[in-house]
């Protein structure tokens, strides 16, 4: 081999080394996060506290990014053309294989949104050591916050991942969240989950209890979900609670949701 050829190869080698984002990866399931990639739920909620909620809340709902990064980039571009949005909800299945790197890529894309974004954990996010990844990167699997007149309750409903152990979703936690405590002031609540109660991946023994909690609270008119990779809006339990499913970014759609004191409006957007 000529001298010039191996200098070329050496040049190529240095190019490879310098172009690698994370030069070394110890394991696809390693949980190595930069400080800006930790506690994202708490950070988004802190940003929300700085905002002044109006009488009408404007929320963009998307989800199931899995390994559809290019479509997620396009979502962010399209979402940023909207105005007066309060926050964005990611319906879960942030990752496909439950690997940290996937979450990092999705956050790298979502951080370009003009508004805070909040996530609910999806079944894919619980694969491998994904539960640990989610909790370190985002935060608790069940959480809630009140914004203006509405309380938002994010709940892990991925029963199949826990072998239908009867503990997921956590019905007693949910009941507590929908009950107005002394220091709380909300007139309604929206429950956000990945798997809807009428899905085969939701614990069949908890479907009725789950819906009953929502209904008996008398504060829930709307529950949002993802998972099915399709649009679906229904009042399937013969009462006024609307279950609204948002399609996946892969199908280039998201929901534009407006919420006011005694009602809401759902618009499906294609991009």
């Amino acid at each position: 081999m000529k001298r010039i050829e191996y200098f070329l190869l050496l040049g190529l080698l240095s190019l490879c080394i310098t172009s690698c984002d994370d030069l070394f990866e110890f394991h696809p399931n390693q949980i190595r996060l930069e400080s800006h990639e930790r506690d994202l739920t708490a950070k988004s909620l802190a940003r929300l506290q700085q905002q002044q909620p109006g009488d009408t809340l404007r929320i963009l709902v998307m989800g199931d990014t899995q390994r559809f990064y290019d479509e997620a980039v396009d979502f962010v571009k399209h979402a940023n053309t909207f105005e007066n949005i309060d926050f964005v909800i990611h319906q879960g299945d942030i990752s496909d294989f439950g690997m940290t790197q996937e979450h990092k890529w999705v956050h790298d894309i979502m951080k370009d949104l003009k508004w805070p974004y909040l996530t609910v954990v999806g079944n894919h996010d619980l694969l491998a050591n994904g539960s640990k990844v989610y909790q370190q990167m985002y935060g608790p699997l069940n959480y809630s916050f009140t914004y203006g007149h509405t309380k938002f309750v994010f709940v892990d409903t991925n029963s199949r991942e826990y072998g239908f152990n009867g503990k997921v979703p956590d019905i007693s936690w949910l009941t507590g969240e929908l009950y107005q405590r002394e220091n709380e002031n909300f007139s309604q609540a929206i429950v956000v989950s990945h798997v809807p109660p009428h899905d085969g991946d939701f614990d069949r023994n908890l479907e009725e209890a789950y819906h009953d909690v929502l209904k008996s609270s008398r504060r829930v008119n709307l529950s949002l979900f993802g998972h099915i990779h399709n649009w679906q809006t229904s009042t399937r339990y013969n009462d006024n609670i609307v279950y609204h499913g948002t399609t996946t970014v892969k199908k280039r759609g998201f929901t534009y949701l407006k919420v006011w004191a005694n009602g809401f409006d759902i618009k499906t957007i294609d991009y």
């Binding site: 110890f26 394991h27 399931n29 390693q30 949980i31 190595r32 996060l33 940290t100 050591n129 640990k132 370190q136």
Partner: peptide, 9 residues
């Protein structure tokens, strides 16, 4: 301490 999770492969 390095990987955020102990993993044997």
């Amino acid at each position: 301490s390095i990987g955020g999770d102990r993993i044997v492969t």
